[in-house]
Nucleic acid binder design. Structure first.
Lengths: 198, 198
DNA sequence: GCACGACTGGACCGATCGGTCTAGTGTTTT
DNA sequence: AAAACACTAGACCGATCGGTCCAGTCGTGC
């Protein structure tokens, strides 16, 4: 029997692993202050982890950590998408539920953070690595949404298109919502995309 | 007679003023690497300006410069919007022209830069100042687009709404175009928003 | 001429950056 | 018991960060 990989939360203990605490602290801070705006010490303090551990789990340091954070975020987003579509009778309902869920998150974050989805696209020295990472994460997210579209009767192509259009609109809406500090911009997105009246 | 304000380009000389060179270098670099990712020395080198001058023109330093850059960018965007609508027979034509112009810019920038419009929203220590600055700039841009909508027969409300929806879609499209390095995402935006076939 | 403000040029500063390195602590394997 | 390994702990490093300061250079008005 091979040992359980330590970078997942042990379901038996309450404590997330050191690695996970790093990833989650990093996710939060990168979203708030951006890649270059966040110092390693800040992340380490928030995670309650010494520097040595960071470079053990992420040999390439900050960039490595950022990619892990992006990956983790994408998975979280997909989870919310799946949740939103679970009981949705049609595409618009699923999208609307997702927007409302995210608007709630937006309010919790006090309108301060970057869009969780597109915050994946960090600037930074290693631009191309981040770009590639972001591209993959987006495609995962879009594919997840498209799957639900297909399950609701769309053709593969139509579903992919609808998912893409939605993610585009969502990203723009989040940013505008942030500058205005109004989560209703997010709740209004379905009306913008699919016509007034819900 | 009062002296000409030195922060505008003297139309008689070719040389942009020191202040303008700073703002333009800052605009370019902030767009490429973000606020925190750009060092002052980098900006100063690119602009060919010593540090003392920066703090003469922008007493509050980097933050001041960033706001000036955001303002300048907004004006440039509005200029492109006005250009795009100059000969447009209807809203969709104006928007389409704008998208094509920006797609061309996107290609020139080699897909590397952040969206010129929403790149205005810097992270940074002084978050609220930047947020306010971004909010005003967005409103200026949206108002500019809405004006053209009204001139083309929309009601004030409809025009504002259409402009807002478009800017939202544009921002999302730029980001997706960037991760995919495909400017066609921008050119396709009118089809997404207003239905296929141009 | 000379004084004065606007502006330039750049040395200098403490703080913080990301990253390295080594010592120490457990746990597992043999 | 001992060696091997996974991981923690944090002191330490040179580089670079944004910002300050002041001496020097103009152009202009008195």
């Amino acid at each position: 029997m091979f040992s359980r990989p330590t970078h997942y939360v042990d379901p038996m203990t309450e404590e997330p692993s050191t690695r996970d605490r790093l990833v989650q602290a990093a996710t939060r801070l990168f979203r708030q202050r951006g890649y270059d705006g966040t110092g390693l010490t800040e992340i380490l303090t928030e995670a309650g982890v010494p520097k040595g551990s960071l470079y053990h789990h992420f040999p390439e340091g900050k960039a490595d950590l950022a990619c892990a954070a992006a990956d983790w975020t994408a998975s979280e987003i997909i989870r919310v998408i799946d949740d939103s579509f679970r009981a949705a009778p049609d595409w618009r309902h699923g999208i609307t539920t997702f927007c409302y869920k995210m608007a709630k998150l937006f309010d919790i974050l006090e309108s301060a953070d970057a869009c969780p989805i597109f915050g994946l696209l960090f600037e930074g020295p290693d631009h191309d690595r981040f770009r590639t990472q972001a591209e993959q994460s987006f495609d995962r997210i879009i594919a997840a949404a498209a799957r639900h579209g297909q399950a609701l009767g769309m053709t593969a192509e139509a579903a992919h298109d609808a998912a893409e259009t939605f993610i585009i609109g969502f990203q723009g809406s989040w940013t505008l919502a942030r500058t205005r500090r109004k989560s209703d911009v997010l709740r209004n997105l379905p009306n913008r995309l699919y016509g007034a009246k819900s």
